[in-house]
Each structure stands twice: as C-alpha cells, then as structure tokens.
C-alpha cells in the first residue's frame, strides 16, 4: 500500500487485524519478517534514525508520564526532539489552548479527552512530516471523538500526512483513503466513497416493533442472505439481487410484524466491511 503526501489515511479493522503491528514497523519499532517499507523514501530498517526524527507517534495506550504535569510532559518531549515549545507553538496552538488552563495539573489526573489532546500535542511538538496515530479514539466518547477528528482535519490542512487506525467504521468516512484490515490482511484499499460505490448488492432497511423477533424471522427466511442490526434498522440482503422489497414485506406480514417498514438503502462502509468479512470466511 502507499500513502500519499498530505493524505489522511485510515487503517480500519477490529483488534487483531494487525493495525498496531503495521504501525510499529513503520515507526521502526519492529522489524518485518519479509518485504520492505519506506517512509518519505527512507527504509524502515536502515534509516530508522532519520525516520524517528521526522515522524510523530501516538501509541495506542496513553504513553505520557502520569506523574509529570501537562507542561512538563510537553517540555520534555520538546527537548527530546531538540526543539522548544515556543518554536513550534503555532502547530499545536489550536489543540494545546484547550488544555492550557490545566498545564500545572499532573497528566495522570486529566480526563480521557484531555489526555488525548496532550498526547497529540506531544506527538506534534517537533513538527513531524508524518503523524502516526494508533487507535486514538478507542474508548473515547462520541463528543471527544468528533473533536479529535476535527483536529486531524486541521492538521492535514497544514500539510501533515496522517496515518490513523481505528476500530470504528463510521470514522472511515472521514479519511481520504482507507485500508480495511482483518486478521493481518488488507481486504481492500480505496477512498471510502469508492468502497461504498463498489458495493453492488441490493440492500434493504427493515424495521418493526419487535426487532429481535424480526432478526430471527428474517434469518429463518429462505430468501435472506444476511440480516444485521444497524442502529434502528436491520440491514438485509437477499440470496440474490432478484429478491424484492415486497417479498420481505409479505413474508414479515405473515409473521405478524407491526409497524413494518421496508425500503432500499445506500450501504455504509460498515456494510462493505461486513460483506468483505463474509467473503473472507
């Protein structure tokens, strides 16, 4: 795979898909068994020192010093990268300004969202050309996640190439391009738009009053291929694309479902991923 300069590239997949391992290889922290990888043209094995100078990295776990204050953490990482906070303040200002009121607080005492902002500030302090973020939004609430992606968009506009991993499918739509990963393999790489457009099967959204019974009934129906819950609707595919909405509707009416709704729906990236998973298995 290739990531273009200035791109916001997403590695999407569940735990165990190999996202972290790939990032660590790119970060020169692990050595691959086979094959090669370059960052800005530098080989991840031979030129690891150069890469370590120009990449910003935020590992999956919160990896700052909990017993140091916000300010001390930031200053420490600045000196480690032979720079100062004031020198690159422009880049981190938008993010850091939100945690600045707490700069005397120990990092361990920050809330989840603030920790994340501090970690991002520290990863950015040396003006990296490439930013690698390993599951920055895992376990973070929806509001903080949204804010975080807005920050990433801003950074991208400043010309930083960003490689980010996430288990949340909905975040895939926010990337320029994504790689869908599962069990160490890349299932597909494309823009989210193309991935969704590449989904050619007919997809129906179905709901009724009793969703659980609805799933069970649909799965027992011989013309159903898959039926999965998606928010308030079920997303259902037929055995082949000839299966019409009315067929589902009639079947479910016979099963006494109330307030039935059946209609065509555009797939989401999650549908695409699940389809790919299905093919894999």
């Amino acid at each position: 795979m290739e990531v273009q300069k200035g791109e916001l590239f997403g590695l999407i997949g569940p735990d165990g898909a190999g996202k972290t391992t790939l990032m660590r290889i790119l970060m020169t922290l692990l050595i691959q068994d086979k094959g090669m990888a370059t960052m800005n043209g530098f080989d991840v094995i031979k030129d690891y020192k150069k890469i370590r100078n120009m990449v910003g990295y935020m590992p999956g776990r919160f990896s700052l010093y909990q017993d140091l204050t916000v300010e001390e953490n930031l200053n420490f990482f600045a000196t480690v990268f032979k720079t100062t906070v004031s020198e690159n303040y422009d880049l981190i200002r938008d993010i850091y300004i939100q945690i600045e009121p707490f700069k005397k607080r120990l990092a361990g005492k920050l809330s989840g969202g603030m920790k994340q902002k501090l970690a991002l500030s520290c990863a950015l302090i040396h003006k990296p050309e490439i930013l690698i973020l390993d599951e920055p939004t895992t376990g973070v609430d929806a509001v903080s996640r949204k804010e975080f992606w807005e920050m990433l968009k801003n950074l991208q506009q400043k010309g930083i190439t960003i490689l980010v991993s996430t288990p949340y499918m909905d975040e895939a739509m926010l990337c320029n391009r994504v790689a869908l990963m599962q069990k160490g393999k890349v299932l597909d790489i494309d823009t989210p738009r193309n991935l969704v457009d590449g989904y050619t099967r007919k997809l129906y959204a179905i709901r009724s009053n009793d969703m659980h019974r609805l799933i069970l009934d649909l799965r027992s129906y011989e013309k159903t291929d898959s039926a999965y819950a998606f928010g308030q609707y079920l997303h259902v595919t037929g055995k082949d694309d000839e299966v019409e909405a009315t067929e589902f509707e009639n079947f479910l009416m016979r099963k006494n479902h109330q307030n039935l709704e059946v209609f065509d729906i555009q797939p989401t990236i999650e549908d695409v991923f699940m389809e790919l998973l299905g093919i894999e298995e």
């Binding site: 997949g13 569940p14 898909a17 288990p167 599962q182 659980h212």
Partner: peptide, 21 residues
C-alpha cells in the same frame, strides 16, 4: 463490545436480546 469486528459485535447483541427475552 470494544475492539471486535462489526459482525462479531452484532452476534454479541443477539445474545443480549436472548437474555432480555
């Protein structure tokens, strides 16, 4: 359901529905 793929996540919810039933 943190960290699992979308299909596994939905299968987990099947169990939740069953328990609720």
């Amino acid at each position: 359901t943190g960290g699992v793929d979308p299909i596994t996540r939905r299968k987990f919810w099947d169990l939740i529905y069953e328990a609720s039933d």
